[in-house]
Design a protein around this nucleic acid. Structure first.
Lengths: 141, 141
DNA sequence: TACAGTTGTAACCATAAAAGTTACAACTAT
DNA sequence: ATAGTTGTAACTTTTATGGTTACAACTGTA
């Protein structure tokens, strides 16, 4: 089970907008051809990023443009914007048996550890900004 | 998108075997009634845990028993045993456009950060043993 | 030896989430 | 007015999961 590719698509989309946006009008078609997915998938992604206040998109005339500074956008912001994970990353079996000493206490025993692991993941995502990615990308281009 | 409940089911299963195993014969039916899922789901879980060398299961006579010491079983061992994640936790869009400066370099820019985040999660799972959970559980029972 | 209780596993179904696609109304700059 | 876009609904396909039934094979015991 994997975290949806919406996340990496969104990061790719942002890099395209922030790096190529000075030179090109970043339409959903253009971005789609870079990511290599259907333009509607990109429009859905743009919609989420716009709702999160990260970019702006002009209906009609077209083109996505930056709103927030790249230094102020972390991978975590993108991760939440596209709703990769709905609350808890770890799924839990629904109704452990309360008549059983294990079933009764499984949540008390396990939940905090799962939350810790999820937090560790998310903190790593918080430690990387779009600006970091752009720096590395500009070296490679 | 969430990590499969096979993981928490497996942890629950192990706790049942290690804590209640001295008193009861831990059949798939009994464990299933604690976890509250179909017995076949538990047999599949037991199968994975057995393949990982964590427990043993006797065909015919029945009953699952510990093999490894609880101190030597981490949540990460369980996580890998039941194959929560097939390699990379983060899904990646398949064929970014190599003609585009962003598409060409997106993997070089992003992969290590995603791997770092995944490693952070997995390291947390490595830091918790079944013995830790049993200690806490025994206080609650 | 026969049997009752189990495990191991195949097969199939139902459900849910994702992603791809088509289609089209609404918008905007020229 | 028009050409180029966006926003979004609707539908399809695919995939993973988990639930379920079924049954052969195994094992300890009467």
């Amino acid at each position: 089970m994997k975290i949806t590719s919406r996340f990496t698509v969104a990061v790719h989309t942002l890099l395209a907008i922030y790096v190529l946006g000075k030179e090109y009008k970043m339409t959903s078609d253009l971005i789609a051809s870079s990511v290599n997915v259907n333009p509607v998938v990109i429009r859905r992604t743009l919609s989420s990023l716009k709702a999160a206040g990260i970019i702006d998109v002009k209906a009609g005339s077209g083109g996505a443009v930056p709103v927030k500074d790249a230094e102020d956008i972390t991978l975590y912001d993108v991760y939440t914007a596209v709703d990769c994970v709905d609350g808890n990353l770890f799924n839990f079996h629904e109704n452990p048996n309360p008549e059983c000493p294990v079933g009764k206490n499984i949540h008390a025993v396990l939940d905090s550890h799962l939350a810790d692991a999820q937090t560790a993941l998310e903190n790593k995502l918080k430690s990387v900004t779009l600006a970091d990615l752009m720096k590395r990308l500009n070296i490679l281009i």
